[in-house]
Design a protein around this nucleic acid. Structure first.
Lengths: 345, 345
DNA sequence: CTGAAAGCGCTTACAG
DNA sequence: CTGAAAGCGCTTACAG
């Protein structure tokens, strides 16, 4: 790609009439350098628009200033919130963030980790639900472990069954249980759940917690009441449409993410069903936009930005040799207008 | 950071009992290598979980497989849409994308470009409106030009006055004019505009186009009818609130972005004003979520993903020496329920 | 086809 | 404090 030569440290040293070593030291400020020499070096660098070659620096043992963040989709609002926190923390630590979207393709995830290893990123963050899939877990571990052995830091948001890494774990199970308690307290007794793939730990945890919460009120959630679809807005739309087509008697629908709830809301609107008059709808995550929907969505609020900050902090703090840490982040039920009390029938 | 040694090519070569050169060639597939030797090398690399050091590769003249993308805020839905396109195109080209958010801080923008230069990224994409600010333009050019001179590719989304780079330019002016025509055709004669900082080229262009479109119907937009606020959802909320507090007689409000329109919608709802019964509201961009608002938003649709794909394509295609290209991307007015026809008063 | 060797652009002991 | 030199881990002419 590069056929025109870059300005190198050597050019700067020559221009400033000092040795390579002195130029390097003047620029890095590591060792004391006679002030007039330093001035000359700085001036030369400035004049030549010199930028150090980070590859050479890294190779020569300089610090690595980059961390990789791998997520399912940077354009998903859930991730967008987390990424704000990541970016802020990275900025404070003077780190350059390399972001990648896997679109939930395991191959692509592995490929990105491999590239990040090749770049010798100082840390890798995995943001998003793990898969409960032996094959995937094995392949992931095969990339992650050598990376860690080589001194790489790894931290994840969400629960991963097998990875030995620091993690920030939203309390999906307890949050969903709390939501269930809130909804049964409102008088709801018949529920349906719009879920993503059951191979995702997040989905599994939320369904389980919701079920447990319902059980406390003596309400049972049948498998038949759970509709599985893509973990996206369109998946929510499809799942709700299926429910509508099938006919159902729930008074309240729980979509395991806000993004899916948005799709469900659209499907309901298109079908001429009013929320919450005809049916209540709740989500999970509290992505910013749900406040602006009509009606605003009842949900379980997760401190998204904080999740991002924390995972970055875990990765930055050195943890080799120590056992992996788990930071649990509770959710908070936020009741808005998409759910309403109902008299028991 | 790294105190435990990495597995190097030398380890692989030793394990496979071949020379460094042969190991390198076997792994890269550049030159023919006797098949049994290649087998041995591949097996050794596999067994040792070898990953090449990208820094060493880059330094030794290997290809750079990374492109940097700098935007205002990765969590902004406008950028989220574009980033999907960028990611897809990058993926096809086998590129690793390094993403960064500047939060509209010129200092941070410069710092990121500098880091990307240091990384010798093969291309840098700037996504988002430029500032009409001499000082900023100068500082930006001071980073960009040496980068280009060194063979770096640069492409931008949006209009930048001074940068000599390939660009994808949404037709903000014409799109806004079309919107104005649509709205005047609906009978509206009195307008207000919710705008971001006038230093942003995008804001300037949209206001100008809107004004021109109105003028065709003999409608004038006074400076007093333009409220300037932050280029965010909260900015839209604040601007609309100010308008409400001040009292105004417009029948239609145009927010220069959908994100601002969302804030405005919330402000109107809080003030007990119905859209479109009491007042019509239109935005710009057609970010996915505006379909799901109540009411769905009338807006000017931009092909966001395509913008992202195109800017990546421009950057990947080699263009040194040639003059910079401009790809204009038209917007399309989409009338939804947030605006309604009105009888002229 | 294969190997010894130079070189990419830095940093950092090691002597002065 | 300063400089000459080794070394980081690769790739790629250049000879065999």
């Amino acid at each position: 790609m590069d056929d025109r030569p870059h300005v190198t440290l050597e050019d700067v040293a020559r221009e400033a009439q000092v040795s390579l070593a002195t130029a390097s030291r003047a620029l890095n400020g590591t060792t004391k350098v006679r002030s007039d020499l330093r001035e000359r070096v700085l001036a030369a660098a400035e004049q030549l628009a010199y930028t150090p070659n980070a590859h050479a620096q890294a190779l020569a043992g300089g610090a690595h200033r980059t961390v990789g963040v791998i997520c399912h989709d940077v354009s998903d609002p859930y991730f967008a919130g987390i990424s704000r926190g990541v970016m802020r923390a990275a900025d404070e630590a003077g780190l350059l963030v390399m972001l990648a979207s896997t679109f939930r393709d395991p191959q692509r995830e592995i490929a990105y980790i491999s590239m990040l290893r090749a770049q010798r990123a100082s840390a890798i963050l995995l943001v998003g639900s793990g898969f409960e899939d032996r094959e995937w877990e094995r392949a992931l571990a095969a990339e992650i472990e050598p990376y860690q052995r080589g001194g790489g830091q790894v931290a994840v948001v969400s629960r991963h069954r097998t990875l030995r890494v620091d993690s920030v774990q939203p309390e999906n199970r307890e949050g969903a249980a709390q939501l269930a308690r809130t909804l049964t307290a409102q008088g709801h007794r018949r529920f349906a759940v719009l879920a993503g793939p059951r191979a995702l730990t997040t989905v599994v945890d939320r369904i389980r917690g919701f079920r447990e919460g319902l059980a406390e009120a003596g309400v049972e959630l049948a498998e038949h009441d759970i509709v599985e679809a893509a973990f996206t807005r369109d998946g929510g739309h499809a799942a709700m449409s299926e429910l509508l087509a099938r006919g159902f008697d729930a008074t309240c629908v729980f979509a395991v993410t806000d993004v899916m709830a948005m799709g469900a809301l659209a499907a309901l609107r298109e079908a001429g069903r009013s929320v919450p008059e005809d049916i209540s709808l709740a989500g999970f995550d509290d992505i910013p936009v749900v406040r602006d929907l009509a009606p605003p969505l009842t949900t379980v609020a997760l401190p998204l930005e904080e999740l991002g900050e924390k995972v970055m902090e875990l990765a930055v703090r050195d943890n080799r040799g120590k056992r992996s840490r788990i930071l649990r982040m509770p959710g908070t039920v936020v009741v808005r207008e998409s759910t309403r009390p109902i008299a028991d029938t």
